[in-house]
């Protein structure tokens, strides 16, 4: 058991160290969500003028963009598992007397941490979206971001555990991330989506993530009931259950690698 935690810790630490050494990557990956926020948010702002008090499209999109940023960075982080396979570093861990399930856990936690560090920059930029956040809100949002990141990183870990090549990984991931992003409700609320799309949105873990973030950001707004689909408790429970299944499968996958 001690070996399990030590391994999770050292694999997590390695990911965080590598991340902090890649300043340019951090900035590069921030560009995309910012573009979405500024161009999509500002561009559609007047089209989405609704007669609902407290509603503003820019601040509606803001949590969606945070969710998107977390999605892409957390997924991107599991690419390193494939690199480790191809550049041979994984062998060093596989031959060591440690439970292999710890690799999956360490990687998922490492990916979620880096995704949060990056998403955290977006929290600082809240005023750009016309949102003002209190300290309490920021702490809760950071916690939620971690849960979202962990659920996404767990999917990435599970897929990466089973893939040998970069091409294969990217193929599957593109197939997964784009629908996850589009169905997350980042750009439109559930209740304005057509009936056939709503059940699909409810299958998307990121939908619950974005909903949870909105619950917090819109907590004191009269538009709350319009922008969210369920309570933050339900969101968090769904995300946790989802993560548990994914990380469980990921850990099993690693335990079985030859």
């Amino acid at each position: 058991m001690q070996a399990f935690f030590a391994t999770v810790y050292i694999i997590w630490l390695r990911d965080v160290k590598r991340f902090t050494r890649e300043g340019t990557r951090v900035l590069a990956m921030l560009g995309q969500p910012l573009l979405y926020l500024l161009i999509m948010g500002q561009g559609l702002r007047s089209a989405f003028k609704m007669n609902i008090p407290g509603f503003d499209y820019l601040s509606f999109v803001y949590p969606g963009v945070i969710g998107m940023s977390v999605l892409f960075t957390a997924i991107f982080s599991s690419v390193s598992i494939i690199w480790d396979k191809q550049f041979g570093f994984l062998k060093e861990v596989l031959v060591a007397p440690v439970p292999r399930a710890a690799i999956a856990m360490g990687k998922a936690l490492g990916g979620s941490t880096t995704a949060c560090l990056q998403g955290g920059i977006l929290l600082i930029l809240a005023p750009l979206a016309g949102v003002s956040l209190g300290l309490g809100q920021i702490i809760v949002l950071a916690g939620l971001m971690f849960i979202i990141a962990f659920s996404v990183a767990s999917i990435g870990t599970l897929v990466a555990a089973r893939m040998e090549t970069m091409e294969g990984f990217h193929l599957i991931m593109n197939f997964l991330t784009l629908p996850m992003f589009l169905l997350s409700g980042a750009f439109f609320p559930l209740n304005t989506a057509p009936a056939w799309m709503q059940p699909l949105m409810r299958l998307d873990p990121l939908f619950y993530g974005v909903d949870a973030l909105r619950n917090v950001i819109y907590a004191d707004s009269p538009a709350l009931s319009y922008v969210v689909a369920q309570t933050v408790t339900v969101d968090v429970l769904v995300l946790l259950a989802f993560s548990l299944v994914m990380i469980g499968l990921g850990m099993m996958s690693f335990s079985r690698t030859e």
Partner: peptide, 26 residues
């Protein structure tokens, strides 16, 4: 085990690679 092909993390320092190993082996 010393593998035939490289198995270091080249984004870490020499020392960090060594300490990583020590944690894995307790």
């Amino acid at each position: 085990m010393v593998f035939q092909d490289q198995s270091l993390d080249d984004r870490l320092t020499a020392e960090e690679n060594m300490l990583f190993h020590c944690v894995l082996y307790g």
